[in-house]
Write a protein that binds this DNA or RNA. Structure first.
Length: 547
RNA sequence: GGCCGGUUGGUGAAAUGGUUAACACACACGCCUUUCACGCGUGCAUUCACGGGUUCAAAUCCCGUACCGGUCACCA
């Protein structure tokens, strides 16, 4: 049996050779500086904030160099694959403006000339590459059972040896063709292992685009390349796919850092150019007061859907991601407030190498800033969309009082320095609930009763002072005028100087009115609120005001 | 346990051998203001995990220790 026949025997029914596949995937015709990158998730039905970060960064690098960003689905672990997982990923990312030039666009469809982009559909290709290795004595079938593997691991732990299949532990590394055939004929199960040419004593260096020069021992592990179900492992698929698809930059999470020696060994073995690697540090999060890194897989709050449910605008999340991707982004933005954040050019060497705590306060601040700048109408529409999904009662109110709500949201908005009190679509209800009688009547907000609160003052105000037709100047002058009648001063500074001479200042008078009609000490401009409420409703609230 | 990476204020971080360690968020105080905000100003690390070393000079380079993280699967 020749080597070739052996390879055919081990991996039968493979339609093409490695060389034929290499022919089929032509080099891309792109600028020299163009970055071809990929986002390669498993369709587990869970889009993690880290995935968003990685895909966002990948997309940006491709875009800013006129390159290509493709979506490859890594579904070689059939146990983890979830129904509709692919669509879930595509939809989630699309919400954040991340769309791919090539790759899967649904469970069944894809675009691009370098496909298939779903790994389970590329079985023949991986087999062809594995056959090449077998023919060249660079791979072999391994018949070890699970329990045998387990035993080896235990033994290695006991004698404190390195764990893995290498050296004397690679029992089938030099198995004869005859023996292999015999075992297979007997029905023994096998997988294909790479015959590693590495020596642990030797060092290899890799230049990571983010981390710089990295040194590792050479890989000497005979890693599995084809599993018993005929599908490849990540390492092997990475080699085959990223080479064939012409990927120039592999941007991925730093959990892959430690398998880098395997990857470069694979590329070197095939004589392929190594892609440029860029390993991103993990995004982590603070829990309560304890600062600790949380497991990405176990922490549901890191799901992208969380921010959707909280009503944090996608744009805010994107801007936040920019700030953690390149720390000089914020300064750039402050220096160029009129530029779109998409104009900022990301660079690899500005990506942080240490893990960053997810700073929710910062995100909140960015979100407030963003929401303060959009129009009342846009805020209304987005909030409507949000409440339609998460707060039907409020949705009904918003629908019922559309114009009124937009007016409410527009208070102190179309000015040079708008208010920043709304941090999410979810918070809109909390911020303006008092503007709806339906909500105000049920309002349970507890406000502090202060000595200077006076029903008499309120009654006087509504009966003798308030006029809906007053402009803001007049409105305020009238409030000032009534101050002295009730022992307040219209002069804030004077009050500060001699507080014992007065019940309070005009600020306190405003506070009484404000608390009466909103139950809060802090609200947007009182004049506007009173105007939108209208005299009848103000009167009603004064009557009900419980001092 | 082996291998690899990381460690700068309350938080995110900048500064890659050279004056008082940027900036942003948060917090505190103050100012501005016709209410509430917004805004503005000031303060907040005598010091860069710790210990040694190199140097005229170190957060920055070297060695060691500690801690955190990753990885060592027929998971990606």
């Amino acid at each position: 049996m020749t080597k070739k026949e052996y390879a055919d025997f081990l991996l039968p029914n493979v339609t093409h050779t490695k060389e034929e596949y290499e022919q089929m995937y032509q080099k891309r015709n792109l600028d020299k500086s163009a970055i071809v990158t990929r986002f390669a998730p498993s369709p587990t039905g869970f889009v993690h904030l880290g995935s968003l970060f990685t895909s966002f960064v990948s997309r940006r690098f491709a875009t800013q160099t006129n390159g290509v960003c493709l979506l490859r689905i890594e579904d070689t672990d059939t146990k983890r694959t979830v129904e509709n997982g692919i669509e879930e990923i595509i939809e989630s990312l699309k919400n954040y403006g991340i769309v791919f030039d090539e790759g899967a666009i649904s469970e069944t469809e894809e675009v691009g000339a370098y496909g298939p982009y779903i790994q389970s559909k590329r079985k023949d290709i991986y087999s062809a590459f594995a056959k090449y290795l077998i023919e060249n004595d660079l791979a072999y079938p391994c018949f070890m059972t699970e329990s045998e593997l387990e035993e080896i691991r235990k033994k290695q732990e006991d004698i404190k040896a390195r764990i893995g299949i290498y050296g004397v532990y690679a029992k089938f590394r030099n198995i004869s063709i005859e023996e292999a055939k015999e075992r297979i004929d007997k029905g023994e199960k096998y997988i294909i292992r790479f015959k590693s040419p590495g020596n642990f004593e030797n060092k290899v260096t890799v230049n990571d685009a983010i981390r710089g020069s990295l040194e590792f021992p050479e890989n000497d592990l005979d890693i599995v390349i084809i599993k018993s179900d005929g599908l490849p492992t990540y390492h092997f698929a990475h080699l085959v796919d990223d080479h064939l698809m012409g990927v120039t930059h592999v941007i991925r999470a730093d959990e892959w850092l430690s398998s880098l020696p395997i990857h470069i060994q694979l590329f070197d073995t095939f004589g392929y150019d190594r892609p440029i690697y860029a390993h991103l540090s993990p995004l982590t999060k603070k829990e309560g007061n304890t600062i600790r890194k949380l497991s990405k897989r176990k922490d549901p709050e890191l799901a992208v859907s969380y921010y959707h449910e909280e009503g944090i605008p996608n744009e805010a999340v994107k801007i936040y991601i920019m700030t953690i991707a390149n720390s000089n982004f914020e300064e750039w933005q402050i220096a160029k407030p009129n530029k779109d954040y998409n104009d900022f050019v990301l660079s690899f060497d500005k990506v942080s190498t240490s893990g960053s705590l997810f700073d929710l306060e910062k995100l909140t601040s960015i979100s407030k800033e963003y929401l303060s700048k959009i129009s009342a109408e846009a805020l209304y529409n987005d909030t409507l969309k949000y409440t339609e999904e998460f707060d039907r009662d409020f949705y009904d109110l918003l629908t019922k009082y559309k114009d009124y709500t937009i007016k409410v949201l527009n208070i102190e908005r179309e000015i040079e320095r708008p208010r920043k009190d709304i941090e999410s679509y979810k918070a809109v209800k909390r911020e303006i609930s008092y503007m709806y009688d339906e909500l105000f009547d049920k309002d349970t907000t507890t406000y502090e009763h202060k000595d200077f609160y006076s029903k008499e003052l309120l009654n006087y105000y509504i009966d003798n002072v308030y006029d809906e037709n007053d402009d803001k100047q007049t409105w305020f002058s009238k409030i000032k005028e009534m101050c002295s009648k009730f022992g307040f001063t219209e002069d804030t500074k004077e009050y500060k100087k001699n507080p014992e001479n007065y019940k309070g200042s005009v600020a306190h008078v405003c506070e009484i009115i404000r608390v009466c009609v909103t139950h809060r000490v802090m609200t947007p401009d009182l004049y506007e609120i009173l105007k939108l409420l209208g005299k009848d409703r103000i009167k009603e609230r004064i009557e009900k005001f419980d001092i």
